[in-house]
């Protein structure tokens, strides 16, 4: 643990301007990813996962979204104040990004060929034929059969699964060392979902990639990620290894999540719906523990501002973690 982490996020706060007020979508987020390591960030929709992911590559919608404070160190280099020229190299070249909707993430009026070659050429000095070759290899690598034909296709001519494979190929085109995958399987059906997950895992192993996997489906974590961070209402409430997480959950929210998880592979349903109430909206967060209104263990101290408490499995954002 002595060497510089691949990605080290420190105290990162992401804000959105709504009606002239800056509201925090993610607050004081800190985590690390080492080379070859995979971290899963899990949370319900609206908890700030995507805002966090976008912030990491400064992809927040301009001018509404903004990094309010904190640092994002990529191999010791802070992305937050980084000049744009360097940022362009990092985007795609060092950190690849896989998006949630393969349908809209690809340019509908450009062939796959053009989009992949463009990504390759941005970061690798290749001539036309080399780039084509690289593109074919890349598609093969992400498991697309008959890549020569597929390259000629437009996004709408491909199935959802194939499109997400192209999305992954785009993210890999610049030979990055870290992949950020923002709910890459959400819009896919079960069989494609499994295929994409195993593809990601294979690629990560093969290429030794660091992986930040963002999802609201806790179940996916078990096999894919080394470590898991749970996000709730803009904060990371608990971080730990995958094993500890499933075996020794600490935060009441984490427990509730796990309790809602069906045994083995049950029928697909919204797994978090069994927790009473719903996630408070942006700007409606309680002053103290943000889970307080839904927490079965809530006590008066919970209404005071919270800080991380060290436990044997990692830091947990809950004042009563040792009492439970």
């Amino acid at each position: 643990m002595d060497k510089i982490p691949l990605l080290s996020v420190e105290n990162l706060t992401v804000g959105f301007t709504v009606n002239g007020h800056v509201l925090h979508a993610a607050e004081a987020i800190s985590f690390k990813i080492h080379a070859g390591e995979s971290l899963g960030i899990v949370g319900e929709s609206g908890c700030g996962k995507t805002a966090l992911a976008m912030a990491l590559l400064r992809l927040l919608p301009h001018p509404k979204g903004k990094i309010v404070g904190g640092h994002i160190f990529y191999q010791g280099e802070d992305i937050v104040p980084m000049p744009l020229e360097r940022l362009y190299q990092i985007r795609g070249g060092e950190i690849g990004f896989i998006f949630q909707e393969p349908m809209t993430a690809l340019n509908p009026v450009m062939t796959i060929h053009k989009q992949v070659i463009e990504a390759i050429k941005l970061h690798r000095k290749l001539n036309k034929s080399e780039a084509l070759l690289a593109a074919i290899q890349l598609l093969e690598e992400v498991g697309i059969e008959d890549p020569e034909t597929r390259l000629k296709a437009y996004p709408h001519e491909l199935s959802g699964g194939l499109r997400q494979r192209v999305g992954i190929a785009l993210a890999l085109a610049g030979n990055p060392t870290l992949l950020i995958a923002d709910e890459p399987t959400t819009s896919l059906d079960a069989s494609h979902k499994a295929q994409i997950l195993s593809l990601l895992k294979t690629l990560q192993k093969k290429r030794g990639l660091g992986l930040l996997f963002i999802t609201h489906e806790l179940g996916l974590m078990r096999t894919l990620c080394d470590r898991i961070a749970i996000m709730y209402a803009g904060q990371i409430v608990e971080t730990g290894t995958t094993h500890n997480f499933f075996e020794h959950p600490k935060h009441p929210y984490t427990r509730a999540l796990l309790a809602a998880l069906p045994i083995l592979t049950g029928p697909k349903k919204d797994r978090l719906s069994s927790i009473m109430g719903h996630v408070p909206g942006l700007g409606e967060w309680p002053k103290g523990c943000r889970f307080v209104d839904r927490c079965p263990h809530a006590q008066p101290p919970c209404h005071k501002p919270q800080s991380y408490i060290k436990t044997d499995t990692g830091p947990v954002l809950c004042c009563r973690v040792h009492e439970l």
């Binding site: 590559l57 744009l84 985007r91 998006f99 340019n107 509908p108 009026v109 450009m110 610049g174």
Partner: peptide, 30 residues
């Protein structure tokens, strides 16, 4: 410019201007 593929393009490492010219404009001409 607010479309997802524009974000993809920027995440690839294109500058904003490049993304507008190469990706946004063609769609806007439709």
């Amino acid at each position: 410019l607010a479309a997802d593929f524009m974000r993809t393009a920027i995440a690839k490492g294109l500058s904003f201007k490049q993304a507008v010219w190469r990706h946004g404009l063609r769609n806007a001409l439709v």
